[in-house]
Design a binder for these strands. Structure first.
Length: 152
DNA sequence: GCCAACGTTGGC
DNA sequence: GCCAACGTTGGC
């Protein structure tokens, strides 16, 4: 089992959007970064646990726990010419971009803010707290996972 | 809204 | 293959 952190803007798709979906499950589309793509496509497995992170908002931080409900499969939004995730280089035969399905496990009792995460020395190696990091999907070690949950 | 950091693009 | 220009991310 692997652990991950996935970022989303709450105004676009936040934890409450996920909670209101049928089966509290939704596909995670629109990732257009190769490093993140590789994780979606090659590493995420059904049952993996995910921290749901709110970015680009008033209090950025971890707001919930989700799990991978379906492993990587082609992101069909890349083939919709009318959508903002359209990529003409991606085809049905040779998809470039991938997505996974994510199911809500639970919301946290409170937001564990980025500010708080930055203060924990045991989390200093997380890409999340490093300056200039822009990865929207990143691995979390078991030690980091447990340290973060202990903050709740 | 600003802007630093970073990834991608494309000319050469 | 280098690297400047450009677009995007995301904290503040």
């Amino acid at each position: 089992m692997n652990y991950w952190l996935m970022k989303s803007e709450p105004d676009v798709f936040g934890i409450d959007h996920l909670a209101s979906r049928p089966k509290q499950t939704e596909h995670w589309d629109g990732v257009r970064n190769y490093q993140a793509r590789n994780m979606l496509r090659d590493q995420m497995q059904v049952g993996d646990q995910v921290f749901f992170y709110h970015s680009n908002c008033k209090v950025p931080g971890i707001v919930g726990i989700a799990e991978i409900a379906r492993a990587g499969y082609p992101d069909h939004t890349a083939r919709n010419p009318d959508g903002k995730y359209y990529d003409p280089k991606s085809t049905a035969e040779k998809p470039i971009w991938y997505m996974v399905d994510v199911r809500l496990v639970r919301k946290l009792r409170r937001t564990i803010s980025l500010e708080e995460l930055k203060q924990r020395p045991e989390l200093a190696d997380m890409p999340l707290v490093r300056r200039g990091n822009r990865l929207s999907v990143m691995p979390v070690s078991l030690q980091e996972w447990e340290a973060i949950l202990a903050l709740e």
